[in-house]
Amino acid sequence: MGKRAAAIVGLTEWAPKRVWDEPMFTMEACARLAAEVLADAEMDKGEVDGLVINGLRESPMFAPSALAEFLSIRSNFNETVDLGGATPAGMVWRAAAAIEVGICETVLVFTPSVPVPPQPGANGGSMKMQMGAYLGGDVWGSPQGQFEIPAGLVAATPSFAMAAQRYMAAYGVSEETLAKVAVDSRYNAQANPMAVFYGKPITVDDVMSSRYVADPLKLLEIVMPCYGGSAVLVTTAERAARCPHRPVYVSGYGEHLTHKSITYAPDIVDTPIRLAADRAFAMAGVSRDAVDMASMYDCYTITVLLTIEDAGFCPKGEGGRFIDEHSLRYDGDWPLNTHGGQLGMGQAGLGGGMSHITEAVRQVQGRAGERQVPDCNIAYANGTGGMLAEQVALILEGA
């Protein structure tokens, strides 16, 4: 049995939207999320003594202290995490670790992703991401800006397409197999009224006939950017015992990164999740076979295949066969991304990455409604950041 020192006891999540009609400052969004997650856990704000965020637009420096001031919280543990899509999972294990070593007792973890009010005289408050900026290409001296972006490695899609091409060349997986990942994700989204693609199932033929964005990745194999936000509350085992929902212990975790740009990846089909997952499972003391559901970062279909393999659920090179032989649906034999994943629910910035954790918590707590996996006690969740670069794995266990 894994660690039993820190547990997730509350969560809140805003339904992702492609158009967000209520701009708010990041601190305001955090305040609303904090009120909601504390209410869900039936805990008082005065018990909070830790904050984990990914930064504040209103305070590029001293972000944790600015938020503590705004929320009127005296905090003993304060972190700003920058791991791309792996940030939410990285936030959760840092909160758990801080509790384990006794630095603090209750930590708020935030991932707001909403447009801010427009600045007078400026061009809007949009959160649209500049393509080159995603790799740091707009920064003076950036290696990517000098050598890679001019060659077409702009943002994420070309990099993941390279990984997909390489994997296909090495192991012969078909495009139809990758399409099945998207189809099963959409199926799961039909049981999640919050999903952007709720009411919009797709078939393998739909995926195969959608246009190529970067060969071999097609439009329906790529996440839909949107807005949203989420938060979780992590606390001690003692406090967790008096909360209304089943405590979900963070019993194992691992983190590993090897590069920033795909150009410098040691091996683009052997991702850092391998070492991160090995550490997480070893720490928790559970086997892969004990996992009741998995919640894997799915910015692209190829990301899911690589994660299934490298997290150790099947041997290298057999991910395609694993996907073909298993149903990844919430009512299937290997439930994966039961909320629809980001491919089915939408990628609300870092809230998209956090959705994999909130869904795992819902499942273990028995709060997933129509898509509830029976007897769900152990969940695997992970985050993938950048160009298959930063990787964090979590083992989440019910009390």
Rank of each mutant, 00 (worst) to 15 (best):
Y227Q: 12
G102C: 12
A191M: 12
Q165F: 00
M131D: 10
N192V: 04
W334L: 12
A63Y: 05
E325H: 02
F70N: 11
E28V: 14
A122W: 06
D267S: 15
P244S: 04
M1C: 09
D44K: 12
A368M: 06
T177M: 13
V196M: 07
A241Q: 15
A133T: 10
Y300D: 11
V364W: 00
R246C: 08
A34G: 04
M208Q: 08
G228P: 11
N188C: 10
Q146L: 13
D82I: 08
G141Q: 13
P244G: 03
Y300Q: 09
R57Q: 07
V52I: 14
L396Y: 03
V234F: 02
P244W: 01
Y380N: 08
M24C: 07
Y198T: 05
A265E: 01
K316A: 15
L396H: 07
R321W: 02
G102Y: 13
G351C: 10
R186H: 15
Q342S: 03
C104I: 06
A89Q: 03
F313L: 13
H256Y: 13
G172M: 03
L336Q: 10
T157I: 13
A170P: 04
V373D: 09
A294V: 15
R288P: 06
S126V: 07
T338A: 09
T358H: 03
A214C: 15
A95M: 00
D324C: 02
Y212Q: 10
S113N: 14
K218Q: 15
K316H: 15
R211L: 04
P225K: 11
Y264T: 11
A7Q: 08
N377H: 15
V37G: 11
F62P: 03
T303K: 07
R367V: 05
M283W: 03
G285D: 09
Y167Q: 01
E390A: 15
A5Q: 13
W93P: 00
L396R: 02
I268P: 08
T358G: 07
